[in-house]
Amino acid sequence: MSSAEAKADRSPYLAHHFESIEQQEESCTLGMWLFLAQEVMFFGGLFMAYAVYRYMYPDAWLEGSGALSIKIGGINTVVLLVSSFSMAMGVYYCQIGNSKNLFRALLVTLFLGFVFVAIKLKFEYFPKFAEGLFPGDGWGPHGHYADLASFGDQGALQIFFFLYFVMTGMHAFHMLIGFVILVVLMVMTKQNKFGPQRFMPILFFGLYWHFVDIVWVFIFPMFYLVT
C-alpha cells in the first residue's frame, strides 16, 4: 500500500500519531484513568486527614455529625446518583448517534448538578456560616446549633467542620469545573461534533462526573452518618 492510499484509508477522527482507532481509544482511556488515579490520590490525602482526626477525636465526630442533616444529605445523594445516570445515558445516546437526546442528557446532568450545589449552599453552607459553624475567628455555634456550644472540646469540633468544609467544598468545586465542561460539550453537541465515531470526549467527561459521584458516595456516610 502506498502512503497516499494509507492516508486515504484513515478515519478523519484518527490522529496522525496513532496506528488505528482502537489504539487511539486505548491510549486516551489510559490517559484519562491516569488523571483519575491522580484525583484519587488528591482526595485520598483529604480522607487520610479525616481518618486520623476521626481516630483522635471520635466524640467530636459524633457531635459534629449530629448537626448535619441526613435528610438534606440524602436528597443530594439521590440528585447526584440520578445525574450520574443521565450522564451515562448521554454516553449511550452519543454511541448510537442520537445527538438530540445526547444534548438533553447533558442538559439534565447540568441541571441536577446545579440543584445539588444550590441545595448545598442554601440549606447547608449558608445556615452554618450564619450560625457560627465556620472554623476560625468567627467560630461560635448559636441559633439552631446552640447545642454544639456546650461540647467540651471546641477545637476538635472545629477540626470536624474544617474537614467538612474542605472536603465537601473541594467536591463542589469539582462539580463547578464539571459545569463549565458540560456547557462546552453541549455547544459542541449542537455543532454536531459528536457521534458513534467520536464519543470519547463524552465518555471521558462521564468518567470525571462519575468519579465526583464516587467521592460523594464516601463523603456522605463519613460525615452525615457517624454513629
Binding site: 486505548e26 484513568w33 491516569l34 488515579a37 480522607f47
Partner: peptide, 24 residues
C-alpha cells in the same frame, strides 16, 4: 464497573483503574 465501563475495558485499563485505589 458499569457507569465507567471498566467491566468492558481492556485489562490494562482495569489495572490503571485499580492502581489509584491500590496506592491509597
Amino acid at each position: 464497573m458499569f457507569f465507567m465501563h471498566v467491566k468492558y475495558s481492556s485489562k490494562l485499563t482495569k489495572v490503571f483503574a485499580a492502581s489509584g485505589f491500590f496506592w491509597l
